[in-house]
Design a protein around this nucleic acid. Structure first.
Lengths: 128, 128
DNA sequence: CAAATATTCAGCAATATGGCTGAATATCGT
DNA sequence: ACGATATTCAGCCATATTGCTGAATATTTG
């Protein structure tokens, strides 16, 4: 049984959001992008104060997330950004564009809804 | 000296991206949003298999990131989503819309650029 | 007020993350 | 082949994260 597509998707979100959670990695993506989409590992590492072995690892995280790809070019490695992958983030964000009757100010609604659907499952879920 | 606005911004990105890095937290945001923008802590906790104290903490992370706010309503707490905060993410993503002459296929360019700007600063930055 | 309900606070343990240093690997120039 | 260059691999350690359990707090209800 091949792993279901939904699972893959799930992991992809995981990887992408996880990768974006670190400032150094966000910076790498921006830098690579503004450098025309590609930079060598050395150029990238040079942007940071930390040991570049550390950058190497960040690059691996970004690559594992599919946000970067690399390719050797002689003795150096060129990292290239894959903008398509960032679309996963916009896709996720797009959910919040879905129109939903937004009762953000209708505090009572929540209160009432709560009062009768509340602890049925909650308690069960908890005590399990 | 009040903390500079840029710093705040910086931390905000940190917090928001960090908060979105966990699947449970992304799920909370979606659930709250589709529930009309507000849910009680109990309703939210009921969605998860883990102990709800764990959810409590996730909620705190989301709130610290400014993605949720809460308010008491008797003995329960209503969590409300703040969609504006998600805009930080779109803002960040928007950078990748900036037109840049993208030589993603122009491998040679990178190679050459590399050859003469590369290790000057890189070496310095490293050996420091 | 006591019991029940709703939810957080505190502290623990396991795991994950990120930075460091010291090899190791691969390619280039001579 | 040798030394320099470019970069990753491995392993260590400190800190952060996440899940758990047990206690504490606030509010409602009888």
């Amino acid at each position: 049984m091949p792993k279901p597509a939904s699972r893959v998707r799930q992991d992809a979100y995981e990887a992408v959001f996880g990768a974006l959670a670190h400032p150094a990695r966000r910076r790498v993506l921006l830098a690579v992008y503004f450098n025309g989409g590609a930079m060598t590992a050395g150029e990238i590492a040079a942007m940071f104060a930390h040991a570049w072995q550390t950058t190497t690892r960040h690059l691996q995280v970004l690559e594992a997330a599919g946000l970067l790809t690399h390719e050797r070019q002689g003795r150096m490695r060129i990292y290239r950004i894959d903008r398509k992958r960032l679309a996963l983030v916009s896709d996720w964000l797009a959910h919040f564009q879905t129109p939903v009757k937004h009762r953000t100010e209708g505090k009572q609604d929540v209160r009432n809804k709560q009062t009768d659907s509340r602890q049925g499952e909650a308690a069960k879920a908890r005590s399990a």
